[in-house]
């Protein structure tokens, strides 16, 4: 553990621990327990107003607030990075209201709240990942009626999901859905892992950690318990494939990880680097060196200090 990556402060007075009152937390925990008992099933819950806009992941924040204890170590990522405004604000929020330790290191965290990405480092038993979900209903785009989608889930009538994939192939020649790619959980419910890239779908399968999903505006919580089968939908002649990248990370030389394209300068120079900034830094600390590491300005390497 480094001093930089794990810090601890006392919570500010005037808040209940982690902002939500105890009764609300109990209500949300009951929804979470139900969600764990029925993997992939969307459990309605009485979503509360949070002191931040919906787009900031209020569903995930409420789930995190309800499971957090004083000994937890929290990591918050957005697009794989610990340093975006969204991630920094949520981390600050819990530091202020719960006084929990925060970290950027995946291995040190007990609770990881995320939008978009699952860390490259596999999660272990005892770790919990909380996803911020904007639209929990995978059938929504073809069937706008809520009563009907509920019926389709109840009766496991999931032909529509394949209609969407069919349309993809008909239009693009391949399944062009690259994020929010639908999965079947434990052989039963179809679930939207939104908005993570499909690259991360295989990480959900048989994950040792607990996966919780919170949608604030839509008032839904769902879950994948540890060691659960998660299958990405596909066709026999168009099997599910994750994105591949032709080059390793320009900074840490990692292969088989999710890369972002980064513009380096105003002359159009660009490079592909790890989307998971923590994993990238850790690799560089271990001595891995990418092709462009020496030529890259410090700010682009993510070497600014963490909050």
């Amino acid at each position: 553990m480094t001093a930089q990556s794990a810090t601890h402060t006392a919570p500010e007075t005037g808040y209940n621990f982690a902002y939500l009152d105890e009764q609300t937390k109990r209500m949300i925990r009951r929804a979470i327990l139900k969600a764990i008992a029925v993997p992939g099933y969307q459990v309605p819950f009485a979503s509360r107003e949070m002191p931040m806009p919906y787009g900031w992941g209020t569903g995930g924040v409420q789930v995190t607030a309800s499971i957090l204890g004083p000994d937890d170590v929290l990591k918050v990522i957005d697009q794989g990075s610990d340093d975006t405004t969204n991630a920094v604000s949520i981390r600050k929020f819990f530091k202020r209201t719960a006084g929990v330790r925060t970290t950027t290191r995946t291995g040190e965290a007990t609770v990881i709240q995320t939008r978009h990405r699952i860390p490259e480092q596999p999660l272990g038993e005892g770790q919990v990942i909380v996803y911020q979900v904007p639209i929990p209903e995978p059938l929504r785009f073809l069937e706008p009626r809520e009563t009907e989608t509920r019926k389709l889930h109840a009766l496991a009538e999931y032909g529509l999901m394949h209609v969407k994939l069919y349309e993809d192939i008909a239009r693009h020649g391949h399944i062009a859905t690259t994020y929010a790619y639908p999965v079947e959980v434990a052989g039963r419910y179809i679930m939207d892992p939104s908005p993570t890239p499909k690259f991360d779908n295989p990480k959900m399968h048989m994950m040792a950690g607990l996966q919780l999903f919170g949608a604030g505006r839509e008032k839904r919580i769902y879950a994948i318990p540890p060691y659960t089968q998660v299958r990405s939908l596909d066709f026999e002649d168009h099997p599910f494939r994750i994105q591949t990248f032709s080059h390793p990370c320009a900074l840490c030389a990692a292969e088989g990880v999710y890369l972002d394209e980064v513009v380096m300068d105003d002359r159009g120079g660009r490079m592909f680097v790890c989307s998971d900034t923590d994993s990238c830094e850790e690799r560089r600390e271990q001595g891995h060196r990418g092709a462009m590491l020496a030529d890259t300005p410090a700010a682009l390497k993510g070497e600014s200090s963490h909050v």
Partner: peptide, 27 residues
């Protein structure tokens, strides 16, 4: 009909609903 789905998808929906999973054959 599903007005936002292609003609092929409209015809193929029932096949997918009964478990057909081969794009080429459905098409």
């Amino acid at each position: 009909l599903r007005m936002n789905v292609s003609a092929g998808g409209n015809v193929g929906e029932r096949l997918m609903a009964v478990g057909q999973r081969h794009y080429g054959r459905i098409r």
